[in-house]
C-alpha cells in the first residue's frame, strides 16, 4: 500500500483513494474497481455454449442467476491455461443489469491505491490487452493493470455472415 500524499500549502484536500479487486492472469496483475465487482468465487461447473465465440467458455449458475463466463486468458490473447489448472471466477456487473464472470488464474487481495498515481497504459503493453485497459498504477513491486470492465465484457456473437 502506498503512503498517502498530501499537498503542502493547499487547503486540506483529502487525498482520494480507490479500491481495486485484483487477480492474476498468466502472471500479470489486473484490477477492477471494487464497486463493479459483484463477487469472487472458486471454480464453478460450466455449461458449454456451442457456436459461441471461443473466448466464452460457458454458462454458470450463480444462485439462480445465469452468468456468462469469459476466459480472460483468451480475452487478453495470453497463453492458454495449462492442462488441469482450473480458473477462478471474478464476477462483474454488466451495464444492462446482468453479470459476467471473468475466468482468471488466481484471485488477489483488494488493493487500495492513491488515485493520483494513475497513469496511462505504457507502450510496451500488448495491443490486445491495451484495448481493454483503462490505465495502470505503478505499485511498489509491480504494475497494476486496470481493466475497463465494459469493454472487457463487450464480446459480440454477432450476426452470422450470410451463407
Amino acid at each position: 500500500m502506498n503512503a498517502m500524499q498530501s499537498s503542502i500549502g493547499t487547503t486540506a484536500e483529502a487525498p482520494r483513494t480507490r479500491e481495486y479487486a485484483t487477480f492474476f492472469v498468466d502472471g500479470l496483475f489486473f484490477g477492477i474497481d471494487v464497486l463493479e465487482v459483484q463477487e469472487v468465487l472458486r471454480y464453478q461447473e460450466m455449461t458449454m455454449v456451442p457456436l459461441a465465440p471461443a473466448v466464452i467458455q460457458g454458462l454458470i449458475n450463480l444462485r439462480g442467476q445465469i452468468v456468462t463466463a469469459v476466459d480472460m486468458r483468451g480475452r487478453l490473447k495470453l497463453r492458454a491455461r495449462p492442462n488441469g489448472q482450473t480458473p477462478m471466477n471474478a464476477v462483474v456487473r454488466s451495464k444492462e443489469g446482468g453479470a459476467v464472470s471473468l475466468l482468471v488464474d488466481e484471485i488477489g487481495d483488494v488493493v487500495e491505491v492513491d488515485s493520483g498515481m494513475f497513469e496511462p497504459v505504457p507502450d510496451n503493453v500488448d495491443p490486445a490487452a491495451r484495448d481493454l485497459l483503462q490505465g495502470v498504477y505503478k505499485l511498489k513491486d509491480r504494475l497494476l493493470l486496470v481493466l475497463d470492465t465494459e469493454r472487457t465484457i463487450d464480446i459480440a456473437s454477432g450476426p452470422r455472415p450470410e451463407p
Binding site: 455449461t47 455454449v49 459461441a52 445465469i66 454488466s94 465484457i153 464480446i155 459480440a156 456473437s157
Partner: peptide
C-alpha cells in the same frame, strides 16, 4: 426461461437458458 447475456444474444440457435433440477445450466 432466462435470457442470455448480450455476448450470446447474436446466436440465433438459442432462445435463452434455464437451470435444470440438478442446478446445472442448459441451453
Amino acid at each position: 426461461v432466462k435470457p442470455l447475456g448480450k455476448q450470446l444474444k447474436g446466436l440465433k440457435c438459442y432462445a435463452g437458458a434455464t437451470i435444470m433440477g440438478d442446478g446445472r445450466v442448459a441451453l
